[in-house]
C-alpha cells in the first residue's frame, strides 16, 4: 500500500491525459458528429470522463474542476448556465468511489455505479432545465443520451480496467 503522498505525485503525462480527455469529450459532445444521418446519438462523454478520472485519480477531479467542465458544456451546447454543472457536481459527489482503493478493478460495480451517476445527473438536469419558465426540457434527447451512454460505457470502462490490471503501477502512471 502506498502512502498518500506517493499517490499525489502524479506524472505530468497523466495530468495531461486527463486534461486532453476532458477537452476532447467536451468538443465531441458539442461538435456536429452525427455519423448516422437523421439520428442524433451522442453519449454523455464528459460525464464518462469525469466519472472515470474521479475514480482513478480523485485529485484530478476536485469539485471546482467538475463545476468548470459542466459550465463549459452548458456554454458549448447553449444550455442554461449551471444546469450540467449542478448535475455533475451532485451526481459525482453521490456516486464517486470511496475507500482506500478507490475505483475497483472489476467491471460490474463500475458500470452499476456509473449508471446511477448517469441517471441522477440526467434527472437533475431535466428538473433544473424545466424550471426555466416556458422552456421545458425535451426528455427524448436526454433518454437517448442516457441509453447511448449506458451502452457505450462498458467498453470504455473495460479498456480502463484492463489497462489498470496490466500495469504494475495502475492506470496511467498510478
Amino acid at each position: 500500500m502506498r502512502r498518500p503522498n506517493e499517490r499525489r505525485r502524479a506524472p505530468y503525462w497523466a495530468a495531461l491525459g486527463c486534461v486532453l480527455s476532458v477537452i476532447v469529450a467536451l468538443l465531441f459532445q458539442a461538435a456536429p458528429t452525427r455519423l448516422v444521418e437523421g439520428i442524433d446519438i451522442m453519449p454523455s462523454l464528459p460525464l464518462m470522463v469525469i466519472f472515470l478520472w474521479s475514480g482513478l485519480r480523485p485529485y484530478f477531479m476536485p469539485p471546482f474542476a467538475v463545476f468548470l467542465i459542466g459550465l463549459t458544456q452548458d456554454l458549448l451546447t447553449g444550455a442554461p448556465m449551471g444546469v450540467w454543472a449542478l448535475s455533475y457536481l451532485v451526481s459525482i459527489a453521490v456516486f464517486r468511489f470511496r475507500g482506500e482503493e478507490g475505483m475497483p478493478r472489476d467491471l460490474p460495480p463500475i458500470v452499476i455505479r456509473f449508471t446511477g451517476t448517469l441517471l441522477l445527473a440526467h434527472t437533475i438536469a431535466y428538473v433544473a432545465g424545466s424550471l426555466i419558465p416556458g422552456n421545458p426540457a425535451n426528455l427524448q434527447p436526454l433518454i437517448i443520451e442516457a441509453v447511448a451512454s449506458i451502452l457505450m460505457f462498458p467498453l470504455v470502462a473495460f479498456l480502463v480496467v484492463r489497462n489498470r490490471r496490466s500495469s504494475r503501477s495502475g492506470f496511467i502512471g498510478g
Binding site: 463545476f67 449551471g82 454543472a85
Partner: peptide, 27 residues
C-alpha cells in the same frame, strides 16, 4: 479516501453558484 482533500465549503459554494446561474440565466 485516497488521501484527497476536498472542502465541503467549496462544494456547497459551487452548488449554490450553479443554482444561482440557473436562476439568473433565464432566456
Amino acid at each position: 479516501e485516497n488521501g484527497v482533500r476536498f472542502s465541503r465549503t467549496i462544494f456547497i459554494a459551487l452548488i449554490v453558484m450553479s443554482g444561482a446561474l440557473i436562476a439568473f440565466d433565464q432566456p
